[in-house]
Design a protein around this nucleic acid. Sequence first.
DNA 1: GATTGTGAATAGATTCACAGCT
DNA 2: AGCTGTGAATCTATTCACAATC
Lengths: 217, 217
Amino acid sequence: MTEPAPPDQPTDLSPLTLNRLSVYLRCLRRLEGEGKVTISSADLARRFHLSATLIRKDLAQFGELGIRGVGYDIVKLRARLETILGVDREHRAVIVGAGNLGSALARFPGFNRGAFRIAALVDNDPAKAGQVIGAFTVRPSAELADVVHEHHIELGILAVPPEAAQDNYDALADTGILAVLNFAPAHIVERTGVPIKTVDFLIFLEELAYLLRGNES
Amino acid sequence: MTEPAPPDQPTDLSPLTLNRLSVYLRCLRRLEGEGKVTISSADLARRFHLSATLIRKDLAQFGELGIRGVGYDIVKLRARLETILGVDREHRAVIVGAGNLGSALARFPGFNRGAFRIAALVDNDPAKAGQVIGAFTVRPSAELADVVHEHHIELGILAVPPEAAQDNYDALADTGILAVLNFAPAHIVERTGVPIKTVDFLIFLEELAYLLRGNES
DNA sequence: GATTGTGAATAGATTCACAGCT
DNA sequence: AGCTGTGAATCTATTCACAATC
């Protein structure tokens, strides 16, 4: 037995590392599109304002992914990162709430890309059921569980008013959905087994506001 | 001179601290809405799943904001955090791009709240100029600079297709805008003095996908 | 008695520097 | 020669433990 026990998946990655891996994946896709075949950590760092050592440290924890003296094989590394991040297969999602934001997300190409497919759109307003929004016919919320099972949906995307967010999260959790992305500015009590990630637009604006301190317009 | 030189604004905060301060601010607003007057770091931690020591460390760097044996005055601390974060005055923003996402953001109540006001919406499609979307009449992109000056706009919000993102960022920068929030899935070359923050929805989905590894649906 | 603010201790993340492949 | 992988060093963030204060 000469196998040095390849450290295939560290039990879990810190959020910082995880985000960086996402960034690396994006960069590799860009390079792949440009037809490049291999890339060194130093090049990657230069082109995308990253740290070369950090890239190597991040990648090394998954085994010896690079070739010394040469660099990383872009296609192979890209595929490996996809597996690590869990985006090597399709994930279907349902958008709950066909209001402004829900409709926009349903039509937004940047959302229906890569490993993710929006499979359905539901709304609890009977007037909305049956309407066609982008590629979807809105289904009534009452049929949520059916929709989830019919389309083998794993992810829920909450685009409902804040006061309805908890109820809709609970309804999603009841269907056996695996995780939820929430766009409502509301605090949601999480159920074990159904992780929720809230995207709060105000936080992004606040980060910008902080940069502007003193900069009176 | 008994003044111990109050450390009013540390030169700059780490992104981690900054995000936590945003979170504290949200919590305090909730508590204020509930009519609570003071709160201890331990209570705050319990109620919102935070760390009490970390809260105290975070706050202590701005001087002695709490009262020993009592806790923090909610209203006073909230106001102080608003100043620290730069959200103690109104920031006006223009949305560039009146497509799906731009229109949704223009109407999204969660975006036009707190210290932030969407003041205008522009689009480079002449067919869209003049259309009314939510509270706004779309202005042509050619008038961007006028719009920015008329409304004393400090922030630009990019909701254009990825291939148009760089040009529109540059156009915003030319108007003298102070910072940009970008929703296009594109890498933008930043100009010094005009910080840009890109919000990539796929990253959020990827974070969820990572949690699902192994969890075959 | 309760709770803050903080120095010391610990844990975690990043960079340095270089040995080891190709 | 060039570049990865990695132990050691450094820097940063968080927690512990307790003195200071109300």
